[in-house]
Each structure stands twice: as C-alpha cells, then as structure tokens.
Nucleic acid binder design. Structure first.
Lengths: 145, 145
DNA sequence: CCCCTAATTGAACATGGTTTTCATTTAGTA
DNA sequence: TACTAAATGAAAACCATGTTCAATTAGGGG
C-alpha cells in the first residue's frame, strides 16, 4: 500500500486557508493510504470508517478543493470520467492499472518535438497535453493466471 | 469544413451487419461533414435536418456502435467527457480546441522510450496509452483579440 | 480559555446526461 | 411481396454530480 504525505496534504489545505475539519481529514486519509480506484462514492464509503457522518456532498466538495489546489488529479478512464489520484507538484502523468484501477505517477514525458510538429502543421496554439498510460500492475498480472 | 468518407462509414456499418437506416445515415452525415464539437445532443439536433423524427436514444445507440467498430473516438474534455470525433483507422490521436471543441487528428506519437522506461520502473505491463493535445485553433485565436 | 463569525456541513431536492423498457416500425432477405 | 429480427421513439428509470438552506463547527480575537 502506498502512503503519501498526509501531513503535507493538511498543510496544503491550511495554506489555502481552508479549515481542517474532521470530514476533510477523513478524506485526506483515504487518499493518502489507498492505492485502488478512487471515485467519489468509494472515497465516501471508506471515509466513513473514520467519520461516519460524512456525506457524499462533502466528499465532492473536498475533492473539488483538492483538485483546485493541485493536490489531486482527475483521471479519465475509458469507461467514464472522474476517478481521482493524489498528485505530486510538477508535471506528472499517471499509469493506471486496467485490472484494479491503481494509479501510479510518473514523470519525464518529452513531447516537445511532437507538439511543435503538430502545432506547425495545424496552426493550433498547443496549450497542454494529457497523457495516461494504461496497463496491468504486477499483482493483477499474477492474479491472471 | 472537413469532409470525411461518408460511404466508407456506411460500408463499415454494413460490414458489421448493422442495418443502414435513415436515422443512422443522418448521424453519419453529421459526423462526416461537421468539424465542431460533437456531443450527442448537438448531433441529434443536426441530424434532424435530414431525419426530423430521430430521437436522442437512437443517436446514443448509433454512437456506441460507431465507437465499437472503431469509426469514432470518444474524447474527454476538461469540463466533462464524451464528445466524439471521427477516427481514421490506425494509431491516431486528437488535438482539441479548448475554445470551440473542434478536433483534429494527428499521428506520429512515439512513446516507446517512455513506455519502456516506465514499465521497467513500475513492473506494469503497459498495454496502451491515451494522449490528447489541448490548444486553440486558428479561428479561436483570432476571435480572442 | 471561551466567544463569535464565517466557513463548513448534511439532508433533501434539483439537474442533466445517459440508459432501459416496451410496444411499434422497418430494412433486408427469402 | 411477406416475413422476421433488428431498430426505433417516447417515456420512464438511473446515476453521478450540483444546489439549497438551516444547523453546526473550526479557529482566530478578545
């Protein structure tokens, strides 16, 4: 199980002058300690272990905040949108397991050559890109036999 | 206005033994002749010029079929999912205008180095990737002044 | 340390896009 | 032309997400 920096997340919230409520703490803990697929409903369910009265509404609100301040990235999966994965600062992308939904960050994509060539061919101003790798994590590979 | 191969699309449907109905023809024509944003509601609206009785249900069903047989690709935009763009056979990606939603295909991404490096670092079997460029098309650039 | 106030919350309801249901129509074949 | 499975449209169901609003609470000022 991957553990990311729970305190760091709390600091980020405070830095943006958001209050640290029990509900938000619970959501952060789920994000910091899970490695599977994270949609709002699942996060809510897990968060109830620590904070039983939390509602879906609050989960959505918290996810929005975290995405705004860059602590979280929305993933778009083939079957739909809006799973979430914790995001480090900087330019990163995610590698997503098609078996279990686990998301791993990576960096070091270099698309400048591609972007330049496409921009000059089309006349577009390219403002950004969006890249995800899809694959199968080691656990799901062995489960498969 | 980009015009793609309408007859080709019809052939593809027949090749998969789908019937060529008036409704499907209308949807195909919209796909073949538009270059703007294509969500289901807009497609339905446009298709009514040729087939006034077509319903949204049928549009969704037709889009599903076309995505299944690879004639269409679902695009995921920042504000939501599920716009569609006609897809040529082969390995292509789309460059999408954040202003008007127009989508342009391109090819020639070469990610093998990246994929290999990420795969060996993470132990994942990488099965595929998904890349979209976001930018602003020439028209939307001039509109902006 | 406690009060105060603005921020936060949850329940219920609203919304919007997509899917399902089912009786009716139709494309393509015999 | 007749037949049959596929396709259709209207309506209803669905599901994820957003909004409203009265009640609660975090955290700074006193």
């Amino acid at each position: 199980m991957r553990v990311i920096d729970l305190e760091g997340l709390e600091q980020q919230l405070k830095a943006h002058s958001y209050k640290l409520t029990r509900q938000r703490r619970a959501v952060l803990r789920v994000l910091a300690t899970t490695d599977g697929r994270l949609d709002a409903a699942r996060i809510c369910e897990d968060a109830r272990a620590e904070c039983p009265e939390i509602g879906l509404t609050t989960v959505y609100r918290t996810l929005d905040i975290l995405a705004d301040i860059g602590a979280l990235r929305r993933l778009h999966l083939p079957d739909g949108c809006h799973s979430y994965a914790p995001a480090s600062p900087g330019h990163r992308h995610h590698l997503i397991c098609v078996g279990c939904g686990r998301a791993v960050e990576f960096e070091g994509c270099d698309l400048t050559a591609l972007v330049d060539s496409v921009a000059s061919k089309t006349g577009f101003e390219v403002e950004g890109h969006w890249l995800q790798l899809m694959g199968r994590c080691p656990e799901c590979q062995s489960k498969r036999k």
